[in-house]
Design a binder for these strands. Structure first.
Lengths: 212, 212
DNA sequence: CTACGGATGTATCGCGCCGATACATCGGCG
DNA sequence: CGCCGATGTATCGGCGCGATACATCCGTAG
């Protein structure tokens, strides 16, 4: 999972660890908290020993011969290899585990711009299936347990159900967009510029206008 | 984190591992996927060796003397100890780490019925602070990066922001309810389900009815 | 002018939790 | 009668986290 994210970032530009982490936070930040160095550096080493990435020494060739007084540790710039790019495509196509709170989905989605259309669709539908299952589970629990559990637990389940329903709707929208072969949303952050391509058939119910 | 959840469930009734896991899924399911046995059993052992729980042998006293042919492994029923109850209260009061995707919050919330009012408030406000920080971060990114990243990444960030805004509003509501000293939600998703009797200790009735 | 703190930068250690896997029993249904 | 799914306990490898350590650079407050 981290492998995919790192290869994806390095696919855009060579980078050293610290910068890599910041880019990672921007890319997958919406789904996962920033990854820790305790994962990053070991993973980088693993990727390197697998041959997916290499060190692209950043030395400006003037003081590298001096392993100086305090064991100087210059920044280490990594770049992706050809095998790494293959590996990246391979990882892109793999669906994560069957659990609901799979952070892998967010990472996959973040790299959709570099993913084939059919794979995009497969990932989105897989995710939808999972969230739907979860939604159904929560509905059952809520319907059956309304009398047996305390009000706080109930409220938590209600909130979870709401989030699940909302995500399913979001996914439906994205899937519909994918099927009609156009990039995701000319949607606007400011409400008045929302020119969302009128004159398209189907989608009578949808069109959740992204407002609060 | 699992410690808290397990102690909380066992606080209600003695139970064996398999059943425990199912109850756990009902309780904290809305926030986390079902926990795995690879966590559950080692944790149970740890809790036991710490003295928070004990084995309450389930044998109906008729065939326990026969360690029979195939090394029979009867179900092991655990129950919470007095020290375990103290530990539970101690864990309840602790705020989790400062990261956004802290699953600890959900677990804490699930046991709010057994949590002191001031602690409830502290947990809710802590959570709100975290989600607000995340929300601000995403707003900045979205405002600044609208031109620089691809449409998919943008969409992901938008969805994350939406979820964060929604959770903040949810938390505001809960906090307001807490402050006015009444249990969460006499809310009616369906009008007829309003007879939710929490039936728990304390909580003097202020009962100024309020809808969400 | 200096020292102080904050950003940049690399790295390790312990451990919580996950997913896969193994193995055993029991009840029901074809 | 035999198969299968639910019940039930358990281990193993490994990923990722949080804490921690340490070193450099730079702006600025004293």
């Amino acid at each position: 999972m981290l492998d995919l994210a790192i290869l994806g970032i390095l696919h855009e530009a060579p980078m050293h660890g610290y910068e890599l982490r910041k880019q990672l936070a921007l890319k997958i930040g919406p789904m996962r908290a920033a990854i820790s160095y305790g994962s990053l550096y070991p993973t980088l080493r693993r990727l390197q020993s697998s041959g997916w990435i290499t060190e692209a020494g950043e030395s400006s060739a003037d003081d590298e011969a001096v392993p100086p007084l305090t064991s100087r540790r210059g920044r280490v710039v990594y770049k992706i290899t050809a095998e790494g790019k293959e590996r990246f495509q391979e990882l892109l196509a793999q669906t994560g585990p069957e659990t609901y709170d799979d952070p892998g989905f967010g990472v996959h989605f973040a790299f959709f711009a570099r993913t084939d259309a059919d794979i995009r669709l497969r990932i989105l539908e897989g995710r939808r299936r999972k969230v739907e299952e979860r939604r159904e589970g929560l509905r059952d629990v809520l319907a059956r347990a309304a009398e047996r559990v305390d009000a706080y637990t109930l409220e938590l389940q209600r909130h979870g159900l709401d989030a699940a329903e909302r995500e399913v709707r979001w996914l439906e929208e994205l899937i519909a967009n994918e099927r009609s072969g156009r990039p995701p949303s000319q949607r606007a952050t400011d409400p008045e510029t929302s020119a969302v391509q009128p004159g398209h058939e189907e989608e009578p119910p949808g069109q959740t206008p992204r407002r609060m």
